[in-house]
Design a protein around this nucleic acid. Structure first.
Lengths: 339, 339
DNA sequence: CATTAGCACTCAGACCGGCCGAGTGCCATC
DNA sequence: GATGGCACTCGGCCGGTCTGAGTGCTAATG
């Protein structure tokens, strides 16, 4: 009972099942995959695979389907890469190149990925926390209201209103603006807490309170709000013809509405690896997503990862194709942000 | 065969069907609604109603269900108002009052409405075109790049980058800023095209080209991009237990992803009436939404309508309750934006 | 010792016929 | 016009049968 063949059988089962949506039996397996052994042999292998927890049979007299563990092995060791056709690549590039601003780029990316994978695509907005800053501006709107505008290298613009109870010391603004921009340009928040504190100290004692307020507001804005924004497309794909989900797609939709959940997942996956990562079924640690897999990777200008992009679908998905699509879109997206 | 009773029968059918999800027959109708007549009489009325196209029977030996036309009549003439309980009102207000900024208000509103109606809630972002402006700022980022920031009375902040090939004439900025703000404050785009043109003429001929560029950019930003933004919540409600849709929810999800479709609908409905409007089934003129109804109304500070809020669900919905919820949320939302 | 052929066994799903009951439409009657 | 009575329709349920795919086991084979 060769180990190699057993893995080959697993691969065949996964591929067949992904393709046909039906439990696959020993006979069709040898027929469709040109295996040089008899069904009986395959059955022995299958028994072993089931023993190992890689496959299971939904009913006594049915074929086998892969378990999460089976998919995991498949993804890790058995799945090849399915390169995109040059035409597809060109289409991706052309479509993304037409984008006019950051919102448009993100919007196009997510739609594109949904269409390529026929699944739910998810794009996290470029994180402020990890984006390099281009410029920082302060605009006094009234005696006590200051508008702070932050512009990142990726083209994202973020603003925050600051109420200054004691009034805005107009004379400080010019110098503060200059110093802040000198400090900030080209760096991201992670590198800034220390330097920003320095800025405050450079001012006269009487003005320090105001300066500190501004600095605090900038830091808050970078850290807090906007790491959280996520854009999604292709939810309709969940309701595809061959109703992929055992029960209802409701829990899946619910999970998707909980952006917090998605963000946690994406972040965790980012920690796992720099490349494309895959989470399968229960690995997501979320009931609603127990029957779904997520394929995600990071993107960002200059090879630095500022946010994540991913595709979510039933565990029975075309992993090779999805991985290829996610990677491709991430790559072009990064390129455009850099350009 | 009294006309009044016939309408009463229709109302009973709608209410029962909405409640039980099952075709309703003549017997249960008299039982559950305490009608003082016999089932046979009801049957005659039903025959007439069917003749008139208000109800239909899915199978020969089944009870009746309302048609779109039946729902329409129900909504227009038969449906009472189902006022929210004081507790609900308080909950709405409390929940919305906690919001910290415009995004948060909109986000909370849409979630709240989804939860109240158990349906899909939709909120259109306050339209820039119809929002009164509070302030307008220009920030030169480099010799040729000008950042324009627009702040509305509703708290929305919009920005646009302007490339000025010939360089920015710094000396003009101060005066331009002053003049623009004087012109703009408290007015909305609709009232501004004329006045803005005037501003340009006030400047020296050499500077007019630059000023015109800025004015044009402001107008573009107000008009163009952002009328289009829509936020949604509660899509999971479409997949509720008693699977509401005849076939699949896929076409519905697809329609919802086409924000253009939604925007068109909301806009059309805004034209229909100032109050709460209802579109039922085929009235939506969209295949994917043939089995859904939309209840929408306008909201905005100071009674002026700046955008729309609505709820979308199966035609078999609790119209009275939905209308009440939509109206209530719209009202509180308006109040908060005004405050 | 892996592979294979043969065989008995299991069981989901399709198919069938009968039955039931809800609901209707119609007609004669009050 | 409202009603009671009645024949009729038909979808859905129930129980039973049959079929075929697929399995696991065992014994034979190279």
């Amino acid at each position: 009972m060769s180990e190699d063949r057993r893995l080959e059988v697993l691969r065949a089962i996964v591929e067949d099942y992904v393709h046909t949506r039906e439990p696959v039996g020993s006979r069709v397996l040898v027929e469709r995959h040109g295996l040089k052994v008899s069904p009986a042999t395959i059955r022995n292998d299958m028994a072993a695979l089931e023993e190992g927890g890689y496959i299971t049979q939904p009913h006594t007299s049915a074929g086998r389907i892969p378990t999460d563990k089976g998919y995991r092995l498949f993804v890790d060791r058995l799945s090849g890469i399915k390169p995109l056709s040059p035409a597809e690549r060109r289409a991706i590039q052309a479509f993304l190149d037409e984008a006019v601003d950051l919102d448009d780029v993100v919007d196009r990316s997510v739609r594109l990925l949904a269409q390529l994978t026929h699944q739910v695509a998810v794009v996290q907005y470029p994180s402020l926390r990890r984006s390099a800053l281009r410029h920082l501006e302060m605009v006094p709107l009234s005696a006590t209201r200051l508008l702070i505008v932050i512009i990142t290298e990726t083209g994202r613009v973020e603003q925050r209103m600051l109420e200054v109870a004691d009034g805005i010391p107009e004379h400080v603004l010019g110098e503060l603006r200059a110093r802040l921009n000198a400090t900030v340009a080209g760096r991201c928040l992670a590198d800034l807490t220390e330097p920003l504190d320095q800025v405050a100290k450079a001012f006269a004692v009487g003005d320090q309170e105001f300066v500190t307020q501004v600095v605090r507001a900038v830091e808050d804005t970078l850290a807090e709000t906007t790491e959280e924004r996520i854009v999604m497309a292709g939810t309709a794909n969940l309701a595809r013809a061959g109703t992929d989900f055992a029960h209802s797609i409701r829990p899946v939709l619910e999970a998707l509405e909980e952006q917090v959940v998605l963000l946690r997942l994406l972040t965790e996956m980012a920690e796992d690896s720099a490349g494309v990562t895959v989470r399968i079924g229960h690995e997501n640690q979320h009931i609603g997503l127990a029957e779904t897999s997520i394929v995600a990777t990071s993107y960002g200008a200059d090879g630095q990862s500022v946010a994540r992009i991913g595709s979510l679908g039933p565990t029975r998905m075309d992993y090779a194709g999805t991985i290829a699509s996610v990677r491709a879109v991430a790559r072009y997206l990064s390129r455009i942000l850099a350009g």
